[in-house]
Simulated assay, not measured.
Amino acid sequence: MIEAVKLWNEPNNKSHWDLELDKDWLIYSRMVRLAGAAVRAEHPTLPRVLGGMSPIDPGFLERLDRQGALDEVDVVAVHGFPLDWNHWPIDEWPLRIAEVRAVSRHPVWVTEVGVSSFGAEEVQEFGLRRTAELLLGRVERLHWYSLYDLPRAWPATTRHREAEGSSYYRHFHMGLLREDGTPKRALRHFADYTPQLGICQWFHFQDPRLDEAVAWLKKLGVRHLRTGLSWADSLRPGAEEWFDQQMRALEDFDVTLTYCFTPESCGMTAHHTSPPNHVEEYADFCARMTRRYAS
C-alpha cells in the first residue's frame, strides 16, 4: 500500500539539490507545484509530502510557501541527525518541530532521523531510545534511518566526502544492521517502538538486500516504510521490471514513496542533484509512478 508520495529528498541540502543552479529554489518550487498537481490528478486523496528539509530551516519553508510550492502538498517533512551532523543537541527535537509548525499550515512528519555507530554502537543505542522518547506521539510519522549500513563499495550520496572530518564516513554506519547483515546493539530495542516507529531504507537498482530487508522489517514489526523510486534509474534498461519487483516485495507495508534524482540527460548539468531542464518531465515521472503503484 502506498500511503504517501514524497516530492524529492532534502531540497535545501547541496548533496541532493544544486543550490548554485537554483539559489532561490524557484525551479524547485515550480517543479513541486507541477508534480503535486500531477499526483493529485492521478490519485486525489493520496498525501503529497514536501521533500524533507535538512537542515531544518523554517525560513526555507516560508520561502517555498511564498513561491506557491506548499499549495500542492499536504505534509511538510524534516530530517534530523543531531548526534552526527546538525548543530543542535538531541533534546531540542521538540523545539525544532515547534519552529516548523509555527510557520506551516500542514502536518509535520519526520521522514529521516538517525544516529551513526561510527564512534560507538552505544551512541546509536542511546540515540534510538532518546529519539523515540522525544518524538513518538509528537509527530504523525517517524522514520528511522536506516535498516542497513551503506556498503563500503557504494558511494554515499553527498558532495563533501573527506572535506569535513568524519562527516562523510558516518554515512556508512547509520544502519541497525551491519553491511554483512549482522545486528548492532540498537537493533534489540527497535521492536519496542514499532509499529509507531517506521524505517527509511533506500534500495539501490537491483539491490540484492531486498528480500532479506523485507524479512527483517516484518520481524521487527515495522508497518511504515519510506523508500524511493529513482527518476534517473527509470531510464536504465530493465527499470520497470526492477521497480515492479521492489514494489511487490513491499506490498505488505504502508509505504511513503520518494520520487527523486535527475537523470543526467535531463538536467541542467549531468548530475542527479541538478534541476531538470524541463520540470514537466519530473511531473510526468511522478504521475506515471503514482498511476502504476498507487492508483
Score class of each variant (00 low, 15 high):
R40C: 09
D207K: 14
R138P: 10
I56C: 15
H278W: 13
H106Q: 12
F243C: 09
V255A: 14
R63S: 11
P44C: 01
A132N: 03
P11K: 07
V32D: 09
T290R: 01
D24V: 00
K14Q: 02
K23C: 13
Y28L: 05
W242Q: 08
R40M: 09
T256F: 04
P237E: 05
D91Q: 14
A153C: 11
E240Q: 15
H204P: 01
G221P: 01
L197V: 09
H43Y: 06
V113C: 12
L26E: 08
S166P: 01
E140F: 08
A191L: 15
D284R: 15
V32R: 11
L177K: 08
L210V: 08
A77T: 00
E112D: 03
R236G: 06
L197F: 07
V222Q: 04
L250V: 08
Y148I: 12
L187W: 02
G165I: 06
M289K: 10
L46R: 04
R48P: 00
E212H: 12
T290H: 04
R185L: 13
L217W: 10
A69T: 01
L50C: 06
F261M: 04
P58D: 07
P89F: 11
P263L: 11
S117R: 10
R223W: 08
G238D: 02
E3V: 15
D233P: 08
E162Q: 04
K184I: 14
V32M: 11
V39P: 05
E125T: 09
R170Y: 00
E10C: 13
Y282S: 09
W144C: 06
R40V: 05
L142C: 07
V279A: 07
F261S: 02
A41W: 03
A232P: 00
S117V: 08
V73C: 05
G36V: 08
S15R: 00
D84S: 09
G68Q: 11
V100L: 13
M268F: 03
V32Q: 09
S166Y: 05
D284F: 14
D244R: 12
R129A: 05
C286I: 05
L50T: 04
W25M: 05
A156M: 02
L257C: 13
R152V: 01
N13P: 01
L210S: 07
P89R: 10
E3I: 15
G198A: 00
F126V: 06
D192Y: 07
S230N: 00
M247G: 10
I90T: 15
S274T: 01
K184H: 14
L187S: 09
L217G: 09
K219Y: 08
A186H: 04
E241D: 08
G119I: 15
R105G: 15
W109Y: 15
A41T: 02
D192F: 06
K6A: 12
S166W: 07
L177E: 03
